[in-house]
Design a protein around this nucleic acid. Structure first.
Lengths: 337, 337
DNA sequence: ACTTTTTATTTAAACGTTTAAGTAATATAT
DNA sequence: ATATATTACTTAAACGTTTAAATAAAAAGT
């Protein structure tokens, strides 16, 4: 790689000090450098195609203008979409985004955080993985700015931007009850993460308010790591039991993707044999024979808010924390009839 | 953000020079520093939770251990999947990935390249946008390592990793011909990019070999920027004309996604009314009522090869260029019957 | 016992910036 | 005419590393 042009090169060619060049190039017209010399320097800089070395700037300023984005999996459409929104919003502030996928594993998440801290990111946007509470606390202790998205830990006080998960599943479950379903299954992840707990809680609350008590056998929990192995069995348990459910609420779109495939394989018809509501939309559902009722998450708001809050926090470290909970909307289609 | 621990802090606490600390911490046991002092330094470093400042290292070494990934849109599943593969492979070499979406626009692509060059990325992986030839040439002139993926420019000699687009559509079209289709439509992007031209060429070649000559009216080209506005009209032109096609080959999965929606809206049945082959798989097609025949691109190979080649090129700037063309496979399903 | 080699540690320069402080030279005020 | 303020530019230190070169002390060789 050819050696890059530095201030020094320009200074040499112009026969002036490095400082003068720096002043002209960073301070514009009120640099305190005379107009003729200014012009000369600018001319040489552009002739040499000077590009400031951001690394050197960062070292000097202590700011890297980069943020670390840690999600479960960048190839998951939910996170890929958020990543795009974050990218665009970050660019508005001249920030660069470096990303990493934790695969919902605390160890990977921790590695990524260390990796990115070493690279001096100015802050993080994180969809925290299971068991990553301690890492997040450590970040907090080190005073490294961060914003949690999608999930957060209610027991610690942090910035976060999330969906109102409780209300989302509460409404969705209500919808299924109103449609006449008395046995409603829930397929969720086996996770202590707050967003998942809240989704489960919302479901339970709706059932309780309908005068029933939520049955443990209707709530199926699947391990992140063995989704494909477990989902068929759990779906079968719900729909093929002695007292089968007439509706299923899927707590994430990946769960729905595989769950629906199983339902199809069992030759069950949505919504006649089983009603369905899924959490979050996905392109994959566009072609499902029965238009699906789904909980629409405010991706754009989550992404832009997260960046805004983070940048603000980076600039003003003493700013008080922002905790944003955005309402989702239930998009009603045929599948919840 | 609390001030970070530096070598200086450790040196001070240990009462030694910064150099000694650096030697111990980077050179391990054969650092030339005595064993007792070594231990002492290591102990203090870990007590203070020292994390090397990668920015400072980069400035010193001229290497940032980061690569810029520029794709059309990170939220597009094709690129999101590649991004994930690149992320994992890059991590093996201790590289970080920063990404940007060009939206198929040369201007955005150019901005991103400049932005990333300023940040001293060691190299690029780029899915080049329309009209970005000059930018790529400029990169070449500056001796900045890069690998093109998905698309490339045959008129310049660069590293690239791509699918054998010509053979892919040639085989796909042949399949449609063998299934008895005489009028076959192609829906492609209106683009001079080589991968798109090759996809079109492969289609034409197959038709020619079948003794026909490809009809201009059967080849529909859609602008990147107004896909949703144009696709319905183009599909209609193919299937509702006086001499309608009995099969359509979609040149990308996004085109197929919207094209199939139109076909459905027209109440046409796949494959009875119209056979279909799509370029590249997508989750979205999982639920299409008729299992689709598709061209399966070697995403994993593209991603890992791109990283391997790039890292090699960064380490050995005089290494000769690698041009990898990977075969895709035609996955035959019901839709091409 | 004195030179030579080896070992252990430090000094200082470098990477490319920014910027406070310094130094002339020139302009203004008295 | 002289003190003072202003302007135009430079010096030098700093950010946190690495590393060649210098130095001092100890070990080995004669």
């Amino acid at each position: 790689m050819a050696k890059k042009v530095s201030l020094k090169d320009i200074a040499q060619k112009a026969g002036v000090s490095i400082a003068s060049v720096s002043y002209v190039l960073t301070k514009g017209n009120n640099s305190g450098v005379g107009p003729e010399l200014s012009e000369k320097i600018k001319k040489i800089a552009s002739e040499l195609n000077y590009r400031p070395n951001q690394i050197a700037k960062s070292l000097q300023s202590g700011k890297s203008y980069s943020i670390g984005l840690i999600v479960a999996d960048i190839s998951n459409p939910f996170f890929a979409n958020i990543a795009r929104i974050i990218e665009d919003q970050a660019k508005k502030y001249n920030y660069t985004v470096i990303f990493g996928s934790s695969d919902e594993m605390a160890s990977k998440s921790s590695d990524l955080i260390t990796f990115f801290v070493n690279r001096q990111v100015d802050g993080f946007i994180i969809a925290p993985a299971e068991d990553s509470l301690e890492q997040i606390k450590a970040l907090q202790k080190q005073n490294i700015p961060f914003v949690l998205i999608d999930r957060y830990f209610p027991e610690i006080d942090t910035n976060y931007v999330a969906t109102d998960n409780f209300m989302a599943t509460f409404k969705a479950t209500n919808k299924l009850i109103e449609s006449g379903n008395s046995e409603i299954g829930l397929i969720a992840y086996n996770s202590e993460l707050y967003h998942m707990q809240e989704r489960i809680n919302g479901y339970c609350k709706a059932i309780e308010e309908a005068g029933c008590s939520p049955k443990k056998s209707n709530i199926k929990k699947i391990d992140f790591s063995s989704l494909k192995e477990q989902i068929n069995k759990k779906v079968d348990e719900l729909v093929l039991s002695d007292n089968p459910v007439s509706a299923i609420l899927f707590a994430t779109n990946t769960l729905a993707l595989y769950g629906l495939k199983r339902i199809d394989a069992l030759k069950l018809k949505v919504p006649d044999d089983v009603s369905v509501i899924v959490f979050d939309a996905a392109e994959a559902f566009d072609f499902y024979y029965c238009p699906l009722t789904y909980i629409k998450q405010p991706l754009f708001e989550i992404g832009t808010n997260a960046v805004d809050i983070l940048v603000d926090q980076i600039d003003k470290p003493n700013k008080k924390l922002s905790q944003v909970c955005i309402k989702s909307t239930l998009v009603e289609n045929e599948s919840s009839k």
